[in-house]
Write a protein that binds this DNA or RNA. Structure first.
Lengths: 129, 129
DNA sequence: GATATCGGTATACTTTAGGAAACCACTATA
DNA sequence: TATAGTGGTTTCCTAAAGTATACCGATATC
């Protein structure tokens, strides 16, 4: 009975349908880290070194403090960036990519590679038609 | 003057700030293809072979025909999936990943790899605390 | 003749993401 | 004493994403 319920058209023979969707969870996690309007730009900005709050905001036109604050908190929660407060006046806060945060690099490069090919393909079609 | 305007803390020395953000466009393109609530599951479903509309819908619980229709159209527009209509009764429509659509696989695997590590890290921390 | 299946579409609704503007305590500068 | 900069928060609002439900014409089955 159990074996008969498995439909080979849906999933590879060694995986049940629910196991398949479980495989998607980590992919969605990774995607969540990178998607959204500002995350990539903020991460990119931090790949070039430590940055202060206003400094990031100035670099990224249109980015409001609310959004920046929210995104930086998420980066911290995910241990991708660290926050350092210095007791100066006015207070200095620096954000920095962690070593772990830097492990995103190959992933972003892979996205860049595929995206570049895709741009070419879509633009080529637009010219053709 | 022009050279002096370039801030090395922001971007690598060979790129201007605007050139940097241009580099992000293809990354965003790739991300757009994969993000959204259903895209990944639909693509995954099609990696196991041709599928009919209702068949996909039955495989993915919660997916409404409106969303499925919309996502399939986007996949078609991006040439990731193809649509074949057969003049049977009732009409048969099959969707299939194109060869190009299959080039997403290494990208999704990369996301899976990073996401799996990330899950472990975050779960380990949750257990620790 | 009623019901079900096929591949969708149409309309109305809720939920989430993001934007605009004002504001906070603190301090340095003019 | 006024102004500007620091790192944010709060409130209100709009736009986009997604959900629920009903419906369509065609045909096959009961």
């Amino acid at each position: 009975m159990e074996a008969a319920e498995h439909d080979k058209r849906k999933c590879p023979s060694h995986l049940s349908t629910t196991e398949c969707t479980k495989q998607l969870l980590p992919v969605k996690d990774a995607l969540d880290i990178l998607s959204g309007k500002w995350k990539l730009q903020i991460i990119l900005s931090l790949t070039f070194g430590k940055k202060r709050f206003k400094q990031i905001q100035r670099e990224i036109p249109g980015l409001t403090p609310k959004m920046l604050s929210k995104e930086l908190k998420e980066l911290e929660i995910n241990e991708l960036a660290s926050r350092h407060v210095y007791d100066t006046s006015p207070v200095t806060v620096e954000y920095e990519l962690t070593a772990y945060g830097k492990t995103l690099k190959p992933l972003i490069e892979e996205l860049h590679k595929w995206g570049t090919k895709h741009r070419k393909k879509i633009i080529a079609r637009a010219v053709r038609d």
